[in-house]
Simulated assay, not measured.
Amino acid sequence: MVAAQVASGVRAEPVRLTSVVVVLLAASAVAFLAARCGLRRACGAFLAVAAAGYAAEWIGVRTGVPFGEYAYTPVLKPQVGGVPIVVAVAWGGMGLAAHAVATALAPRRRGRRWALGAAALTAWDLFLDPQMLRLGLWTWADDGAYRGVPLSNFAGWLLVSFLVMVVIDVVVGQGSAGVSRGLVALYAVMAAMETLAFAAVFEPRDVVVAAVGGVSMGAFAVLAWRRRAWQR
């Protein structure tokens, strides 16, 4: 996954490797979770989150709820109902990683775990939306306050991400299998790679996104890694 991210950063047309990065991200997430709770539950959790993410996007492009008014361009393919399949895959992969981070921080407090997981997953979108807008993968009806992204988008992300955390708990068993260090590391790697990309690779660079996204995701990654909630 990291190799694909590096390759996309040095290519003249990075969008060609976007789907490759997302698929490798999702495969890594499922593999790490499977080591903790078995392949069946891991795949079930991934598919459930991907379905929830797709449903939210399908509703979103038609109604503007819960993210705001936006639309996908034809760049990412294949699409079903105006939503690229790879977007649902991204929800699944990072949803599992954010849930692991939240479980490390609040292994026994369900409501707090869901809230932390929602915030951790939304922190990723502080990178994702500006990056995808650069690549022309989707458009907003109106320019927003954060690099062209409306604040309603992040409110929507918090809502959907909270639902994602609940779904994973139901399928996996509320963290009973322990926390995967691999999933926490996956979240940390995404934070580091996105920060580096916006700070030094993308043209033009964007130190604001690098700082805001890096601090937000980085704080979750560092705190989760320091907690010894996972099993050996």
Results as ranks from 00 to 15, higher is better:
113 R>A: 11
122 T>D: 02
145 A>S: 04
18 T>M: 05
152 S>R: 00
18 T>H: 07
85 I>A: 10
62 R>C: 08
50 A>E: 01
132 M>D: 04
46 F>N: 03
151 L>P: 04
99 H>A: 11
232 R>C: 10
167 V>Q: 12
110 R>P: 07
111 G>N: 09
168 I>L: 11
223 L>T: 05
141 A>T: 14
25 L>I: 06
39 L>K: 10
167 V>F: 12
209 V>W: 01
147 R>G: 11
62 R>A: 08
136 G>W: 09
140 W>S: 05
194 E>P: 03
34 A>L: 14
160 V>E: 00
136 G>L: 14
137 L>F: 04
76 L>D: 00
204 P>S: 14
159 L>N: 15
230 W>V: 00
204 P>H: 12
221 A>L: 01
33 L>K: 10
115 A>C: 07
38 G>F: 04
25 L>T: 00
73 T>C: 14
149 V>H: 01
61 V>D: 04
51 A>C: 12
11 R>A: 15
210 A>L: 01
165 M>G: 00
53 G>L: 02
133 L>M: 14
62 R>I: 14
26 A>M: 00
178 G>H: 15
232 R>S: 11
161 S>L: 04
23 V>W: 01
10 V>M: 05
44 G>H: 06
202 F>D: 08
177 A>D: 08
11 R>N: 12
149 V>I: 09
221 A>H: 02
194 E>F: 09
131 Q>R: 09
164 V>K: 03
73 T>L: 15
74 P>N: 07
196 L>R: 02
186 L>V: 10
87 V>Q: 11
110 R>S: 15
13 E>P: 13
155 A>M: 14
94 M>T: 13
138 W>L: 13
27 A>N: 06
171 V>M: 10
134 R>H: 15
58 W>G: 14
42 A>D: 04
174 Q>C: 15
17 L>M: 10
223 L>W: 11
66 P>L: 14
52 A>Q: 08
60 G>M: 06
69 E>L: 09
203 E>Q: 12
49 V>W: 05
161 S>Y: 03
182 G>I: 10
216 S>I: 06
212 V>M: 00
153 N>M: 08
11 R>Y: 13
12 A>Y: 13
30 V>A: 04
118 A>I: 08
119 A>M: 13
229 A>K: 13
228 R>Q: 15
